[in-house]
């Protein structure tokens, strides 16, 4: 997995609340057996007309946001299905961080497995990011994961909280499975005990 340390990029505003994973990547793109190539289908129904042409009003179709690397989103981003295709599509498009007041749990987990940083902020701080993002390409937001800070284009610095284990994994691009396999002895010991206490499992 790619490490995430610092990021300076254009942020796109998506103030709609409850943006669900069906909106992020609709079901017809779930038939792939690969993780890559989903960026063109990101936000498919919001982004394209039925004939495949772009909807000019959609934020990521606007010239100033086409190269956005950060999304600033309304409450409860990523609700709905467990499809990891949602972060795969975001990553493939080039989105490396999403800022909101809250995320649905499974989507939140899935981001960390794909080198995407989901940042949870109190509403006033998220709103400050949203206002900055609305300035378009003139606004570059800086995120420093090590320092846990977001710096807006006017120099305002916002700090954020993050689970330290997740931070460590993201900063170093660590593979979860590899880390867990180092604890194979604990897992084997658990299985041995469970075979005695809950043999029917």
């Amino acid at each position: 997995m790619d490490a995430f340390t610092t990021l300076s990029g254009i942020a796109a505003p998506m103030p709609l609340v409850n943006i669900d994973t069906d909106m992020i990547i609709p079901k017809q793109y779930l038939k792939t057996i690969k993780r890559t190539g989903l960026g063109v289908a990101l936000f498919d129904e919001m982004r394209y007309n039925t004939d495949g042409s772009e909807k000019p009003e959609f934020v990521l179709n606007q010239p100033q946001y086409r190269k956005a690397q950060i999304l600033v989103a309304g409450d409860n981003f990523g609700c709905g299905s467990s499809r990891e295709h949602a972060p795969w599509a975001l990553a493939d498009f080039g989105i490396k961080a999403v800022i909101s007041t809250s995320f649905a749990d499974i989507f939140f987990n899935n981001c960390f497995k794909n080198g995407i940083l989901p940042v949870v902020l109190p509403e006033p701080d998220r709103d400050a990011c949203m206002q900055d993002a609305e300035k378009g390409a003139n606004s570059r937001i800086e995120i420093d994961l090590g320092a846990q800070t977001i710096t807006l284009s006017d120099g305002q610095v916002i700090t954020f909280q993050i689970d330290q284990f997740r931070k460590h994994c993201l900063l170093n691009g660590l593979d979860d499975i590899g880390l867990t396999m180092e604890k194979a002895a604990s897992i084997a010991a658990f299985e041995e005990k469970a075979a005695q206490t809950r043999p029917w499992v």
Partner: peptide
């Protein structure tokens, strides 16, 4: 998610 599916399969 699918990464966790792989994690559970493996561990």
């Amino acid at each position: 998610g699918t990464s966790e599916v792989e994690h559970v399969l493996a561990t």
